[in-house]
Every structure is written in C-alpha cells, then in structure tokens.
Design a protein around this nucleic acid. Structure first.
Length: 954
RNA sequence: GCCCGAGUGGCGGAAUGGCAGACGCGACGGACUCAAAAUCCGUUGUUCGCAAGGGCGUGUGGGUUCAAGUCCCACCUCGGGCACCA
C-alpha cells in the first residue's frame, strides 16, 4: 500500500517531488488545518430567529434554506464510500447557496435505535447504548474528515433521552387525538368526549354518562389515531423472541438457528394512517418530488372506488368489496380469505378437514408470495353457497390464499369473465364463466379467435370497455350500455335502493403496526390501570427510560411450543413493568406497556428537532418552525427545502413522516402541511467483487486486470457487480481515500462520476483523475517549488475571460440544478484553458484565479479556503459572493451551423452570430459540398432552426 | 408476481426532439529524462479506404417526425420497494 501511495502522489523519497506540490500529504495538512479552523470559529453555526440558537442580526435580510439528508443508522462497520454520496452533494449545494447569500441550515443526526445493535447486544452482552455510541463517534470522525459544513450543535440522535422524550410526547399527541371526518382533520380526543357527553354525537351504545369506564375506553379506542388491535407477529419459541420479516426464511423458519416460526396474534399499537389516505394522495400534487416517487405513493395507498355488496349465506351476510360492481351479474362464485372469520361457520362437515388443512398451509405463506400471480391457483371449496343478490343464483363459496384478509373485506365476488385471477381460478376448478360484456372485435382478433360470448373459447378474462350483456333483472338493465362508469353507477344505485350494498372507497394502505417486541427502541409512554385501560404518562414524567438489562438473550423455549405466550424483553423486568404513579387519581399501581416503538418513530420528525435541538420546553419553537419550514406563500405546503436520500425510502419512511407531520399540523403544533417540500433521490455506489474457481470471494483491491481478464495473484478470477459489503470483500472506506488522495479529491471524484440520481460503480483507479485536476489548479496558482503565488495583476486576454465567464454561467446553473458532474467538467475545461495560458505566460490573471477559487470552494472547501487565503483574503470563503457572469462575455462572434441533407450531416457553415436565418439558408444551399450532393434537384423543404441547424429535405 | 426506475465507446459518463460520445479513467504516440516516475503536447466509437471521403452505431423489434439516445408501443436484461432491515 505504501509503495502504491508513493507512486500515485509522487512522494517517493527516492525522487525529487517539488515541496509544494498538491500531494495527498499536502492535502491532508490543508484539510485538517481548515477543519480545525471551522470548528474553532463555528463557521457553520446557523442562526435561528428565536430561542437558544438565535442571532436575529445574522438572520435578517437573508433568505433561508433548509437542506437535509436522510440520516444514517450508525452501523458498526462505519462508513464505506457509498454512504457519503448524498452528504457531499447536499454539502456542495448548501455551500453554493451560502455563497448566493442564503441562511442555510444543514446538519446530520443519527437514527440510532434499531435491530442490529440489539442483535449485537444479544451476541456480545454489551449494552446497545455503548455499542451505538461508539459507532456514532466513529461515524462523526469519518464525516468530520470529509469537510462537511454541518452545524454540529444540531446533530441529534434518536436514542438521546432529550430526543426520545419528544418522540414519546408526539406519540401522546397522536394517542390523544381522533380524526373528525366532517372537518377532515385530527382533533383532541377531549373534544370528542365533549361531543359524546353533550349528546351532540351518538356513542352508538347509549348515553355517555351511562357507560362504564371500560365501555368508554373501547369507544375511544375505536376513534383514537393510535389504537390497540390484535395483529400477527412472527413468534419463534426456539429463540424465545419475535422475529422481523427479514429474519424469517422463505420456508417459514428462523434465519438464525433454523427454528420453526409461528404466526401469533398479539395486542399491538396501531396508527390510524388510513384516516389520512386521501390527504396523503391529494397533497402529493403540491410537492416538488420526482414523479415516480409520487406514483409509488399513490399506488401504495391504492385508492379504489367501487361498492360493498352483501351476499346472503348460511353464516349470515358476507360483505365483499369490488371495484367492478358493473360485472355483478357475472359473479359465479365467491372466494374468502382462509383467515376470514366466517369460514368456520360456513364449512360443511365433509369439507371441514380439507379446509382446515388448506388454512394451515396458507398460514405459513408470506403475503408477497400469496400475491404472486404466476403461481398455480390453489383453493378449497367450503361446501357452502351464497346468493348473488342481482339474480338470486346460488354460488359456491371457496377459500383461496390469493384473497388477503388485510385488504377490502377479506372476501371477493369472483367474476371470472372480467378478472384474470378469477378466470384462472375458475378454469383450474371448473367453475362457470359468464360474460357480462361483449369485448370489441379487435380483442378477439388479437387473440386469433372469432368473436363469441361463449367464454370457454376465451383465452383470458376481458378487462375494458365493452357492451354489457347477460346483465338484467326485473328492476335493473345494464344490457346495451357501453360505458363502464355509467354501468357502475347504475348498479350502485340499484344496490343502495334494494339494500344490498353501497358505493364505497377502499385503500390498499393498511393501518400502521406500531409495536415491536424488542428492547432497543423508544418505550411507550403508556401504563395500564387495573381495568387494563391504557393511560398516558404525563409530559413531566417523560421520557419513560429504558430499564437496564443484565442479559439481552431471550429465554429459549421448546422450538415447537406455539402455545406459550411470547414475552417481549421489557416484560422480563418486573420492577420496571410494575410501577406506582399518581396520574391524578392518587398513587396507584400501574403496569407499563412492554412493547417499544419501531425504528420509524424517531425518523418521523427529526427534521423538526434539527431546528431547535436544545429546546426543553417544546419539541420545536413555533417561530423557529415557521421561519425554517413555514409555507412560503398561499397554497405552499412548507417543509424542508431540499431532502436528499435513496429511493429505498420512497414509500414507508416518507409516508409515515408525512402522516405524523399532518397530525402535528392539525393539532396546531407546526405551520407546515408537509415535512419535505422538495425531494431528490440519489443513486447508489456499487462495487465489483471477484470470485476464484471455488466460488470464494477474494479481496477486490488485490485483483488486477490484464487484457480484459481479472487476476488474483496467479489465479484467474471472475467479476461480479453488487453492493459493497464485508462478505464480498470489496469495501472501500473514506479513510482509505483520505489517506491516498485527501478529502477534496474524494469529494470531487464522488461528484464527478455521474448525475446524482444515478447509481454507479466505484472504481478507485479513476480517482487519480480528480487529484490531477486539483494538482493542475494548484500549480496554476501556486509555485510548486517555492510555494509563492503565481498570480499576476495583468489584464487577462479576452478569450480566457470568455472561458471564465462561460464557466461561471454554466457552473452556477449546474450547481443550482444539482448537476455537479457537469459543473466539474466545466471547471476542468476552464482550468485546461488556463493551463495553456500559464504555460505561455507563467502566471494566472488575478480575475481568473479569484473566480476559479470561488467556484471550486463549494466542491473542494479545504483547498478552496487555502487558495482563497493565499490570494490575500483574511476571512473564510464560505460567505463570499459566488461570481457573476458578465452577459457581454457570454456571446460568441461567430457560430458554426451544421447543414444536413435528409437529416444526415453533410457540411458546416460558419456565420456571424447576428446573421439572418435567410442568409444562413442561402449560404448553406451554396456550400460546395451541399451543391455536390443535391445537384440540380429542387429541395422540397428547407428547415432552419435559428442559430442551431439547417436541414435540406430532398 | 405487483409497483417504480435504468440500459450510450474498453470503463464512469455528456447531449432544452436539432452536429452522439463533453469531461475523466484506461490505452497508444510525442516532448523532457541516462532511464523511469511526475509533468506537458497529441491520438483514441467501429468499419471500408493510401487518401479525400463513405458505411454502420445509444439493450432488441416496431412506430411517430424534415430530424429520435431523447416521444409512443411491445419485448429482453439489470437495480430498488413490497408494510417487523433501514
């Protein structure tokens, strides 16, 4: 490694390297000098308009900008070179905007609760807090070395007691709220109680005053935005713990130990995010987010309009949800989810064993697999029948795993002629298929069959607009209609007037399961009283701290014992669970909630705590929130001005945060309607990995390429492409890059390899290019032998000035649009022109040097500061104005216009920039090469794109 | 499987529907050097041609247009998400 480094930097003691060459070691000196300087001066301390971090004078007259990265989980492995991509990009942008005069807030915290620390604790017995804190310390060191302009005072961790105190407080805000459908917003639960007490709202169970505390609690539980419900968990008795989905293998066993895993219901906290489904869809239109992400969120929420229809059966009325009530006449059977509560009552004796067997098999499947449409359809007949309300037909009731209990009502009416899954099911089990629409002739033609209403000839279901057939009864006629929406509404009216159903809207979105049976998470600020009713722990008793544990290992049970109740880790600490508190009724015994919150909780609101991290009176000061995140104008959502992170968070994190933010807005705690106004998705950095003949990975940094083949020593190896990771032996760390090249070169390389949104491979070999560029810049400004400045006050030649101003205009535009790769290319072009000048004249004109350093500073802040100082400036370059392009220097005297014949490039003509289109056209037609091609032919058309191109069409 | 995205030289990539390959790496050649490194200058999509010049070329197959990497349709391959990894 040492030899390699010497070769790259030219620092080999055997050779004469100029003393002031920009080598890795010089870069390292410069970098630590400026990192210390920034820390000492608090260069990036960002003023607030109010509160402990306020400095009104520095806030005044500066436009604000809040830039944010998705914060990291502090992993034990530390950072690899993939992590900083987004952090560097936001830093460059933030620094650029500071130079444009804005008051920029930029920091980075840690999402430090989570599964890996707990797993580490189970294995090592070391407390997750100790492990987490040392991981954070290591990441802070790595990030400081990168030269990020963060306000360190605002760097919070979700595991800080000062932080999760407020996470618990927000939980209670949500707990103490209900969604008022009429007002379309959340309101305090006390206002609902008042409505019940006054009789203005019906409890559905008699007068409020006559209800027992338990009954009142149950009613409120049905309205609270956080409520208790029974939901399944992956219980693994062999490990004595509940497993995350990713810890369960495809065949339903534990990843660790390969023990059986059982789905068990547990009482769990659930967030009523579905109450916000419509607002979460509608407000997407007001956000500056990538369109694909909006689409993913819309699809995830999955709003669909249709109808609920009730079918009579021996077990009572079965309600189904359908998006196609217009096809009800074609419903020839019904399918229930295997978990549907009616199944036990419906099933006839001769089918009982087979049905139970099928239910058992479905239980072990994952939802994603159950929805796999390529699987062979499976199902079981219950022996029971339901009545189709439109025609009175008796239709068989089946159960099948492709119907999920969590969506709609857990039961469907099957219309095989109009739904592909139902079609396949009917074909497989020989169930009748009746057409309700006549598909257009083209549909049949595409499938190579003659038009027919006999569905036995159809290769698949027909989904689309067609003329309705076979769809009439005494009081409803759809036959002859051609519009799906007319048919749907006709059917809905009929269903409602005959009391068989109602039009309805459902969502794919499910309420958010908020409990985790873990240790390393926020404890719930909830205790249970003697009636098992949940009671909020008041603010002054927050945070509810995690109890200490001696042993993080759960108690393993018989691997096949699916009877014993799962015990979460906190339940083992009896002295913590049982507590005596005065919650307004005098001192009483209470039992603490033993679940903890999911990791999402802390990341649902951290943007707000960045604003006011030291406030102990409120989670964020209202004025501070309004300044940094408030709406900019009528109709504006407010929120973070730029939020950068990976697409992997497209749905869950971003949806959960939006939900919490909207609740806080409804309750009047924040002025912004959305947490993140503008979102940008960065790509990933991936890496090559190499395997030998036995399939073992070999260290990637020791593999060499020869003639397109890859060699590890004398052994030929194969290359693959994937994530960076320990197991692939292809991790490259920022620390290695700092040592070999310095942080500025590393930053430049990461920004230069492609557009921010694109994923790309890491290639250490290529980093040298950016170091050479910085060396050239340095050499153009500083004498490598003496260290003295090579800058002259002579006037710069106009060509070089033109290059400079072209670069200023281009670089500013590119930085504004987060296109750092092309900004860097433009700086290289300018520097290449400058190198030619310096080679000839021996020095850089001062105006060019100044502009170049200012433009470089956001990308490479250390060398930027160093050169800025050497140019004779005493203050940091951080708040110096970005250079402005002189429009007079941006116009060219002459332009070259390509001339095409029939769209093919045949010649070029050079004209004065001010030449008229007609003159250019004549010039093109008279061009000798063009004359030779068109000869005597008369052009049909000549297209002139002003100042761009001529195309002669023959 | 479902939802979303991406495919351009040897490699990373550039290109408001208007000259495909900016910029960087690598490779090749030259200058400097005893030599090498570093540095500076140049060449580098592919193919036919001595050359002038021409043909072909943005995952595959169609289409729209005077003009398509860019827009539309179908397909192939790769990446992300699928609710307890974050």
């Amino acid at each position: 490694m040492a030899a390699k480094r010497a070769a790259i930097t030219g620092n080999d003691p055997q050779t004469k390297v100029p003393s002031f060459r920009y080598t890795a070691s010089l870069a390292n000196q410069i970098e630590s000098k400026w990192q210390d300087h920034w820390d000492e001066r608090g260069t990036f301390h960002t003023p607030n308009p109010a509160g402990p971090l306020s400095d009104p004078a520095r806030v005044a007259a500066r436009e604000k900008l809040f830039v944010m990265d998705m914060f990291p989980y502090p992993s034990g492995a530390g950072l690899h070179v993939g992590h900083p991509l987004g952090y560097i990009a936001t830093d460059v942008y933030a620094r650029f905007k500071r130079m444009m005069g804005m008051n920029v807030l930029h920091t980075l915290g840690y999402d430090s609760f989570g599964l890996p620390a707990e797993q580490h604790a189970i294995v090592t017995g070391i407390h997750p807090r100790i492990n987490t804190e040392s991981n954070i310390a290591n990441m802070r060191r790595q990030l400081r070395r990168l030269g990020l302009g963060h306000d360190q005072r605002r760097s919070v961790s979700t595991t800080d007691e000062d932080y999760y105190r407020w996470t618990q407080w927000i939980f209670l805000q949500i707990f103490n709220s209900w969604y008022d459908e009429q007002a379309g917003r959340a309101r305090p639960i006390n206002e609902l109680i008042a409505l019940f007490e006054s009789g203005k709202r019906d409890t559905g169970n008699g007068p409020w005053s006559s209800l027992s505390p338990k009954e009142r609690g149950e009613i409120l539980n049905r309205h609270r935005l956080v409520y208790l419900s029974d939901a399944p968990v992956n219980w693994c008795p062999g490990l004595g713990t509940i497993l995350a989905n990713e810890e369960v293998t495809a065949d339903g066993r534990s990843d660790i130990g390969n023990y059986p895993v059982f789905k068990r219901n547990m009482r769990q906290w659930t967030m009523r995010i579905t109450a916000y489904a419509d607002r979460l869809i509608e407000d997407l239109d007001r956000l500056d987010w990538p369109e694909p992400i909006k689409l993913m969120q819309r699809n995830w929420i999955g709003r669909s309009e249709g109808a609920r229809v009730r079918f009579a059966s021996t077990a009572g009325e079965i309600e189904v949800f359908t998006t196609r009530p217009d096809t009800l006449f074609g419903a020839t059977f019904m399918v229930l989810s295997p978990e549907h509560p009616f199944v036990g009552r419906l099933v006839t004796d001769d089918h009982r064993a087979a049905v139970r067997d099928y239910q058992e098999r479905a239980r072990s499947l994952k939802d994603a697999d159950r929805q796999d449409d390529t699987r062979d359809k499976t199902g079981e007949f219950t022996g029971a029948y339901a009545t189709n309300p439109v025609n009175g037909n008796q239709i068989p009731i089946w159960i099948a795993d492709y119907v999920l209990m969590g969506y709609g009502t857990g039961a469907i009416m099957a219309v095989p002629s109009g739904d592909q899954r139902d079609f396949e099911f009917a074909r497989k089990f020989g169930l009748p298929i009746v057409a309700t629409q006549q598909p257009p002739d083209a549909w049949f033609a595409d499938r190579g069959i003659e038009p027919t209403l006999d569905c036995s000839a159809w290769p698949e279901a027909f989904v689309g607009e067609g003329t309705y057939v076979n769809s009439k009864n005494d009081s409803l006629i759809l036959d002859g209609m051609t519009s799906m929406s007319t048919a749907k509404s006709s059917m809905n009216v009929w269903l409602e007037s005959n009391d068989y159903g109602t039009s309805a809207i459902t969502y794919k979105l499910r309420d958010w399961l908020f409990s985790r049976q873990r240790y390393w998470g926020e404890p719930f600020p909830i205790v249970y009283d003697e009636h098992e009713a949940p009671v909020a722990v008041p603010l002054e008793l927050l945070p509810v701290r995690l109890p200490e544990l001696d042993d993080f290992k759960p108690q393993a049970l018989d691997p096949n014992d699916d009877v014993t109740q799962p015990i979460p880790p906190l339940a083992r600490v009896q002295e913590w669970v049982n507590v005596e508190l005065d919650l307004g009724e005098g001192k009483k015994r209470y039992r603490r909630e033993v679940n903890v919150m999911p990791q999402w909780a802390g990341s649902c609101w951290y943007e707000l705590r960045y604003l006011d991290p030291t406030n102990d009176q409120s989670f964020v000061d209202k004025e501070v929130e309004r300044y940094w995140m408030g709406p900019k104008h009528e109709g504006h959502t407010g929120g973070v001005d730029l939020y950068v992170g990976g697409v992997e968070h497209a749905v869950l994190h971003l949806l959960y945060s939006r939900f919490w933010h909207k609740v806080l807005f409804d309750l009047g705690h924040v002025s912004s309607v959305e947490p993140f106004h503008r979102l940008f998705n960065q790509g990933y950095i991936q890496a090559y990995a190499y395997r030998d003949a036995r399939g073992q990975t070999v260290p990637a940094n020791e593999v060499v390429e020869r003639n397109g083949e890859y060699w590890f020593g004398e052994e030929k190896v194969t290359r693959e492409y994937g994530k960076m990771g320990k197991s692939l032996k292809n991790v490259v760390t920022p620390d290695e890059m700092y040592d070999e090249f310095g942080a500025d070169t590393f930053r430049l390389y990461e920004m230069s390899t492609g557009p921010l949104e694109a994923s790309r491979p890491w290639n250490t070999r290529d980093v040298i290019g950016m170091q050479r560029f910085l060396q050239r810049v340095w050499r153009n400004l500083v004498d490598e032998d003496t260290g003295s400045l090579r800058v002259s006050d002579d006037t710069a030649p106009v060509d070089l000035l033109r290059e400079t101003h072209k670069a200023i205009a281009g670089v500013a535009a590119d930085m504004q649009n987060l296109r750092f790769n092309t900004a860097i290319a433009k700086l290289i072009e300018l520097n290449n022109a400058l190198t030619t000048h310096v080679t000839e004249h021996g020095a850089t004109p001062r105006v060019v040097a100044t502009a170049l350093v200012q433009m470089l500073a956001p990308l490479c802040p250390h060398v930027g500061e160093e050169l800025w100082e050497r140019l004779g400036n005493s203050d940091t370059v951080t708040y110096v104005d970005f250079p402005q392009a002189d429009p007079a220097l941006l116009v060219e005297d002459t332009i070259e216009i390509p001339v095409q014949v029939n769209g093919k490039l045949r010649s070029k003509v050079t004209v004065d920039a001010g030449e008229s289109d007609d003159a250019i056209k004549q010039l093109a037609l008279n061009d000798p090469k063009i004359v030779a091609i068109i000869g005597n032919a008369q052009p049909k058309k000549v297209i002139v794109v002003p100042k761009k191109l001529i195309n002669i069409v023959l």
